[in-house]
Structures are given as structure tokens and as C-alpha cells.
Simulated assay, not measured.
Amino acid sequence: MSSQAFLEAVKARRSYYGISKESVISDEKIVEIVEHAVLHTPSSFNSQSARVVVLLGDNHDKLWDLTTNTLRAIVAADQFEATEQKMGSFKSGYGTVLFFEDKTVVDGLMASFPAYAHNFPIWSGHASGMHQLVVWTALEKEGFGASLQHYNPLIDEEVKKTWSLPDSWQLVAQMPFGKPTAEPGEKTFQPIEERVKVFK
């Protein structure tokens, strides 16, 4: 694959908020994409601190019901309708990918390399971001639409409890996905000349 093909895939990745419960590939292929991303996406010191959960079927629905109920307790009643509609749009998808970082790994690196200790949480975030981009782009390349959400830390404890996940797994992002039912919004760009500098 040329770099151009890769860059076109990155360019095509967008945030889709209109998604359906129809799938475009098998569940096995979805899992294969996630496993490939986890195995081959880089991390600082090869820490491999990423942890990922794939929620399909009733488990996907359960996540967005859980999130809706959590938000209901903190959002004013007269403002909740918009929030509920947003949660419904995520729930209408086929599945959700949850991205975590294992704090045990990060804390271990901080203890082993004290000179870099303050950087490891930052580098952990970098690694997670790369995992999110790889999965997002690959899912879209297969014909799914997805978006990236951040309802952590509000839902962290309930998520760990519901799916019996280790306490050291720190939730970073949620990626609902499904077959697109609407086009993404228009994307605007700041002048590239103000964002990239080249010195020869």
C-alpha cells in the first residue's frame, strides 16, 4: 500500500452521529481489527498499556442505558431531552469500542524510570490516541461510521463493575459505531501555513 492510500483512509475518517444497528462485516472481523490495532499500534517503551473492550448486542445497549442513567442524575430535567436524544443516537449503533489504559503498567514505568516519571501518563495518552485512530480508521474503511465520546470519568466505576474489569483499567474513550444513516457534518480547516513550518 502506498502512503497515499493510507493518507486517503485517514482523510476519509469522520465523526458519524447517524448510525444504525446494521453491521457491514462479521463480528469476527470487528474483533480482528481491534486485536490487530492493539498488537501493532506503538506505545512508549513498548509498554503495551492499552486495554480495549468490544461491546456488541445487548452489551452495547447496556452501556448507553448506563450512561443515560448516570447523566440523568446530574443534568437538569429541563435540559435532559437533548442529552437523552444524543445517548439514543449512540445506542442506535451496532457496537461500542471502549479504550482503557492500564495504570498498573504506567505506574510501574514511573517507578522504574523516575527521570521520565512525569512523562509516562502523557505518553500513555499518546498511545491511547493512536489506538483510537487506528481502530476508527479501520472500522470506517470497512464501511462503518463511528465517533469518539468521553463520558469518563462519570461512568468509569459502573463500567468496571458491570463488565467485571480490573480496577487498574482507566477508561479513556468510547467509540460507538454502526452502518451510517446520515452523512457527517462539513469539516473546516485552519490555514495549513499557520500549522506547519518547514525549514531547509
Rank of each mutant, 00 (worst) to 15 (best):
1 M>G: 13
2 S>P: 10
2 S>H: 08
3 S>I: 04
4 Q>G: 01
6 F>V: 15
7 L>W: 01
9 A>G: 01
10 V>I: 15
10 V>C: 14
14 R>C: 09
15 S>Q: 04
16 Y>T: 06
19 I>M: 15
22 E>C: 03
24 V>P: 00
28 E>Q: 14
29 K>V: 12
30 I>R: 06
31 V>D: 08
35 E>K: 15
36 H>Y: 08
36 H>N: 13
37 A>Y: 06
40 H>G: 05
41 T>F: 06
43 S>G: 10
45 F>H: 10
46 N>M: 13
47 S>A: 14
53 V>C: 06
54 V>D: 04
55 L>A: 05
57 G>Q: 00
57 G>A: 00
59 N>S: 14
60 H>C: 01
61 D>V: 03
63 L>W: 11
63 L>S: 07
67 T>F: 02
67 T>G: 04
68 T>H: 04
68 T>E: 13
69 N>W: 00
70 T>M: 01
74 I>G: 02
77 A>R: 08
79 Q>I: 01
79 Q>M: 13
82 A>H: 14
84 E>G: 09
88 G>D: 04
89 S>V: 00
89 S>M: 03
90 F>R: 11
90 F>Q: 07
92 S>G: 10
94 Y>L: 08
100 F>S: 08
101 E>G: 04
101 E>H: 05
105 V>T: 12
108 G>R: 13
111 A>H: 07
113 F>A: 11
116 Y>M: 09
116 Y>N: 04
117 A>I: 01
117 A>M: 03
117 A>T: 00
125 G>V: 08
126 H>W: 12
127 A>E: 13
129 G>D: 09
131 H>L: 13
133 L>H: 02
135 V>N: 06
135 V>F: 07
140 E>G: 02
140 E>N: 03
146 A>Y: 00
147 S>M: 06
151 Y>F: 15
152 N>D: 13
152 N>L: 02
153 P>S: 00
153 P>L: 00
153 P>G: 01
157 E>Q: 04
157 E>R: 02
161 K>N: 09
167 D>E: 15
170 Q>L: 12
170 Q>G: 06
174 Q>R: 14
175 M>L: 15
181 T>A: 09
181 T>D: 12
182 A>V: 07
183 E>R: 10
183 E>W: 04
185 G>C: 04
185 G>F: 03
186 E>R: 14
187 K>F: 03
190 Q>T: 14
190 Q>C: 05
191 P>W: 11
194 E>S: 14
197 K>N: 07
199 F>A: 02
199 F>T: 09
